[in-house]
Write a protein that binds this DNA or RNA. Structure first.
Lengths: 133, 133
DNA sequence: CGAGATTTGTGCGTATGTATT
DNA sequence: AAATACATACGCACAAATCTC
């Protein structure tokens, strides 16, 4: 009974969990193993496990629920944002203020819609999809 | 000559540097003070400094260059991506593979352009801007 | 060309705080 | 009240990349 291949660093651990999410071994809404469980399973320090988790959060793959754990992010229903001629759209990470105001989770970028008038609006990338007619 | 207000945690340090970047005290291409300098200036541990820097990095504000320092990111020239009727565009953080393939820095999201045929393309958000005619 | 200094990257140990179950 | 789980924050050591001399 061969053991799992050794996981030597936080990037490998993150890659392993990314595969598990991609392959459906970890499903949306499901809780990841706790930090303690992961360090015991792979014989890693807490620091290494936390680095891996931080990387998954920055990619928007998992959410942290206080007092509960890390949860695979569930897709949310998307609204169509109809783009009109003359508009310009860029994308970037939101500022701290925008994250608070629009309740944007970690690792979720925003659309920045610029109108010909010079005014602009912010649309969280996890809830809006652009379309053109 | 009152000293700076005390910086008590990594969020405050990150906010301070965000202000300095926003106000032009730190300009694009300019190197930030080193981790050692920041810990001495504000009497913080390396952990706290690195945590603050990681947050700026996730926001796409700074680049790390190992052996050199942390640099305020410079804007790159943007190409216009003309969106045709029937296309759909979403935004998200790139995967590790997409980051490598397209040479996408930290904290930069991508446009995901979906064509009516079902095919799709990836466009780095720091180099492309969408427009409609 | 190399040697050394500088700077960030990775990894570990420990302690305490806060929120949830 | 207790256990669980992550957040914050200090310390240390060594590796790897870059620059300067």
């Amino acid at each position: 009974m061969p053991g799992q291949p050794p996981v030597t660093g936080y990037k490998e651990l993150a890659a392993l969990i990314r595969r598990q999410i991609r392959d459906g071994d970890l499903r949306p809404g499901q809780r990841l193993p706790s930090e303690v469980a992961l360090r015991q399973t792979y014989d890693l320090s807490r620091w290494t496990v936390r680095q891996a988790m931080a990387s998954l959060r920055a990619d928007g793959l998992v959410d942290y629920v206080r007092g509960w754990g890390m949860v695979v992010r569930e897709p949310v229903p998307m609204d169509d944002l109809h783009v009109e001629p003359g508009w310009t759209v860029t994308t970037r990470m939101p500022t701290v203020e925008e994250r608070q105001e629009h309740d944007i989770p970690d690792g979720v970028p925003v659309f920045v819609v610029l109108y010909p008038s010079g005014a602009g609006d912010i649309y969280p990338g996890d809830r809006y999809r652009l379309s053109v007619n």
